[in-house]
Design a protein around this nucleic acid. Sequence first.
DNA 1: AAAAATTATTGACATATCTCAATATTTTTT
DNA 2: AAAAAATATTGAGATATGTCAATAATTTTT
Lengths: 217, 217
Amino acid sequence: MFTNVLRYLEPEQLKKIEEIKFPVNFAKGETIFKQGAPLTHVIVINKGLLKVYLEDKELHSIIIRLIKSGEIVGGPGFHTDYRHHFSLTALEDTEAFFIDVMQFENCILENSTFAIKFIAYLNRGHIGLFNKLRVFEHKHMNGRMASTLLYLSEQIYEADEFETELSRQDIADMSAMTKESSIRIIKNFKDSSIIECNNNYFKLLNKEHLINIMENG
Amino acid sequence: MFTNVLRYLEPEQLKKIEEIKFPVNFAKGETIFKQGAPLTHVIVINKGLLKVYLEDKELHSIIIRLIKSGEIVGGPGFHTDYRHHFSLTALEDTEAFFIDVMQFENCILENSTFAIKFIAYLNRGHIGLFNKLRVFEHKHMNGRMASTLLYLSEQIYEADEFETELSRQDIADMSAMTKESSIRIIKNFKDSSIIECNNNYFKLLNKEHLINIMENG
DNA sequence: AAAAATTATTGACATATCTCAATATTTTTT
DNA sequence: AAAAAATATTGAGATATGTCAATAATTTTT
């Protein structure tokens, strides 16, 4: 049973999707698709954790968000240019199902309730991007890092302490700064007893303080 | 006749929308809606120019894009929280039509081709936001300003020279910098004969150079 | 037409953040 | 287990950009 927008499909549609979907596995570090590549399938993540990121001419990349198991990944190439506009890479070993994008389109055409639910899903993504833009533009580094740590704790690992596969560079790419800066700020937060951190282990000790830094600093 | 996504409606649907829509006029500087306010209507711009911007706790605002006549404005509050997630203000005197959002929803439910076209419209917006994020994050000020000037010339005024109602603060808010910085960079571009500029008159003299600045620095 | 208010411009200065380079640590490969 | 590679850490220095304050130019109001 799907936990994402596909759960709004009619039983016959669901059966059809179940029939045509096929599994693909990815090891940690492997890329599911690259920005610019053709968009041929919608992908459902059965297990794993992935990063969605924008690349530009330079080496630099911006991690927009992470994708957890259960989530569906389409992309704004759907019904525009049928290209991927971001890259998707596995942070942990990942099991994915591929669904032909034309079959997905049929579901929308045949089922207007599903179409509306899909629009709602797109809009939630849009709201997320607005928030990302706000955070990236208006906060100093401390605020951006606080925002990233709270995101990881609340949205991704759903715990105050967690062990992550994200590198310091990844954390920096989520926070719009260099890896050196991310390291320095994590150290500052540690020294101020706002967090505990050893290598890939993080524990948020003072969430109120982090929220305050995110909002005011 | 609509030039936006509404042109894909069936004749009877179009008739219905024409019946229920009502006009509202706004003077330069007036706000159509504010971020946080309830989303009750979809708006079609008949005449004018508007700025779409994000606000945050502080004074600061980020202009995401401009809206020209013919365009439709909904917002990601549709089928999520029914709130506006950005503010919309007239830069020029504006004529708008308001369409009840529930009637708009009916159009999607009744007409799956329209639903798909609306999804395509949302996705183009999503791609635009990705590009904005990329520009905001990776360019130095010169690159961001070049990007803004090219956007105004190519997407908005559709001419190499134009007279704008945008203030220096607006141009700064489109380019993720302070107004002082925007003034300094415009001056630099003038001194380098890349543009001509007197008050609100702009002329792009060397587009290739601007594109180069946008892409490489 | 004068006064007031807003917006634009310039300069001096402060500082947050990046860059680069050296070293340390951890992970992967042999 | 040793060697190699990748990632993380720290420090010193450079610089792009923001802040603040003073002045100039427009625009709006009276």
